[in-house]
């Protein structure tokens, strides 16, 4: 019984972890090219889920998800072009305020378009009650989907940044924007592209977790806080680290429930975030030296 419980809590932790991690990854891409935290990242997740639910009314599931990801990517790109692109050397604070504004704008827009109802995509395999039994421990297939999609995103991202021209240009832009511009890299386009990419990843995450968490016009903020926590915990700018940190946070939260009243669950994650910011602001897997060279 003890062992079974241990693994059941572990599974719960992994479930939380994939949700947090898939949101957390998106933060890092924009941070890498612009040096800012995009506080509208949670809204991309919400947009992805909501659009997919709407499209699913007349499209098969895979096409609906693809459509939702593409639409959200376009919205992400448009937002960058409209609000960020024309700024000349904006300060960090100004960019943060802008992204918070964008997040409120998207949320209110979603309320106007979709109303206040709770929606969700159907489970990709099975239904609401189906679960795989692994020696007494039960896992919803959707959790495996989330973990799988999360892994694929991370692997593809790494390949993209290491082996494609565009990916390398984005990294150059992240390392030193002025030097990158001098080398002929269109840095502004790189920033736009980072918004498009993170919007797409957010939307995909939103689709995959939608059957687990449900989607509503205001879920973005809650998801963004957790995503932000794991991005910080892992070390800003490192997608792989965000995934690791996501699982660590999820598992910690889950096991905290085993011994403490469940009401403390969220207090624990915030406490971890604060402790991390005090003790090791560069994150668990971050580089202290590199951190010192950044504005934020």
């Amino acid at each position: 019984m003890f062992l079974e419980l241990f693994f059941q809590y572990l599974v719960a932790g992994l479930t939380y972890g994939t949700i947090y991690a898939s949101v957390g990854i998106g933060f890092n891409i924009i941070y890498n090219t612009t040096g800012i935290i995009n506080f509208a990242q949670g809204e991309f997740v919400m947009l992805g889920g909501m659009t997919a639910v709407t499209l699913h009314a007349f499209l098969p599931l895979p096409l609906a998800i693809l459509g939702a990801v593409l639409i959200t990517m376009i919205i992400g790109g448009l937002i960058e072009v409209a609000f960020i692109r024309w700024l000349v050397k904006p300060s960090v604070l100004r960019m943060i305020v802008i992204t918070i504004g964008i997040s409120i704008l998207i949320r209110e827009g979603a309320l106007a378009v979709w109303g206040e109802g709770v929606r969700s995509l159907p489970y990709f395999t099975g239904n609401e009650v189906s679960a795989l039994s692994l020696g007494g421990v039960r896992v919803s297939p959707q959790v495996l989907w989330s973990i799988g999609v999360c892994t694929v995103i991370v692997v593809l991202l790494n390949l993209f940044f290491k082996f494609t021209m565009l990916g390398r240009e984005m990294r150059a832009c992240a390392a030193n924007r002025e030097a990158a511009a001098l080398c002929g890299i269109p840095t502004r386009n790189m920033v736009t592209f980072s918004f498009v990419l993170s919007a797409g990843i957010g939307a995909l995450a939103g689709c995959v977790v939608s059957p687990i968490t449900y989607t509503q016009y205001n879920v973005g903020t809650g998801l963004a806080i957790k995503g932000f926590t794991v991005a910080i915990l892992g070390g800003l700018g490192n997608s792989m680290a965000a995934v690791g940190a996501g699982f660590i946070l999820g598992i910690l939260e889950s096991f905290s429930i085993w011994v403490l009243p469940t009401a403390y669950k969220d207090a624990i994650s915030i406490a971890i975030l604060l402790a991390m910011l005090f003790i090791r602001p560069s994150g668990l897997f971050g580089n202290k030296e590199a951190m010192r060279l950044k504005d934020f």
Binding site: Y9, A12, T213, G222, E253, I257, W258, T262, A263
Partner: peptide, 17 residues
């Protein structure tokens, strides 16, 4: 008797308890 956050997105751990 357990209390959870009203904005909880998954309650697997609570249910395990």
């Amino acid at each position: 008797s357990e209390v959870y956050n009203s904005s909880a997105t998954d309650l697997t751990a609570e249910v395990t308890k």
